[in-house]
């Protein structure tokens, strides 16, 4: 999932204080799972904003709505009939949803209510960690299913650097060395010969190096 974190209230207030009618718009997908921008968080943020502006003696209309997804046109259409009634939207979707909402409603200012962080997993209750950087050319087959692009601080492809110590990364004791994980797993799988192979130099053209990316599936196009 795409993992996001709630933005500080002060930052959101600073963006929306000039408006009268605001829609706080949540997303039922990833940001709901990571508890940053689902229906529950929409309610909490909208209430907090109402209280803040009420204390200031401001009469503001702050409505709540949560869409199934903000990254699909069909769900964004669901607010078509009410969009004109708002001066601004605070979207609690990831950066994708914020942008797609803005694209669909060109005259409506859309502000982000979360900081989009990474693609990751729920490692434990209240803890999410990164697993994938979407580099566009998956090498997990040769690294025991553990990604050095996303999980090694230096994105190394041929084993750990000199900073690996006791299975931890040099950036901090809380960070596991991805290559320690890879080696442990390859050994457990009896595939250590794969570790001996020198990885080919990475082609980053499928990553962001080649500019904004696009996939076109002609078999699916209408």
């Amino acid at each position: 999932m795409i993992v996001a974190e709630k933005k500080p209230m002060e930052e959101i207030i600073e963006e929306v204080k000039r408006f009268e009618n605001i829609l706080v718009l949540g997303c039922n997908e990833c940001v709901t799972v990571c508890e940053a921008g689902g229906k529950k968080e929409v309610g909490v943020l909208a209430s907090a904003l109402r209280m803040f502006f009420l204390k200031q003696g401001r009469k503001m209309r702050i409505d709540e709505r949560t869409l199934e997804r903000q990254c699909d046109p069909e769900y964004l259409e669901e607010i078509r009939d009410v969009a004109d009634g708002y001066d601004a939207v605070v979207s609690l979707a990831c950066g994708v949803g914020v942008q797609f909402t803005a694209e669909h409603y060109p005259n409506l200012p859309v502000y982000p209510g979360v900081d989009t962080c990474f693609m990751g997993v729920t490692e434990a209750r209240g803890m999410w960690t990164e697993r994938c950087q979407g580099c566009g050319r998956c090498i997990l087959a040769s690294t025991g299913g553990i990604c050095p692009v996303a999980r090694c601080a230096k994105r190394l492809f041929n084993g750990p650097c000199g900073g690996s110590s006791d299975g931890k990364c040099e950036i901090g004791k809380d960070t596991v060395c991805a290559w320690q994980l890879i080696i442990d797993r390859l050994r457990a799988l009896g595939r250590m010969e794969e570790y001996e192979r020198i990885a080919p130099i990475k082609d980053w053209s499928t990553d962001r190096a080649g500019g904004p990316r696009k996939i076109v599936r002609e078999d699916l196009a209408p």
Binding site: I201, W204, S205, D207, A209, G210, G211
Partner: peptide
């Protein structure tokens, strides 16, 4: 210019 213009188009900018 972006690496895609040059002769090392697999490079990460």
């Amino acid at each position: 210019q972006e690496p895609s213009y040059g002769d090392h188009h697999q490079a990460r900018s």
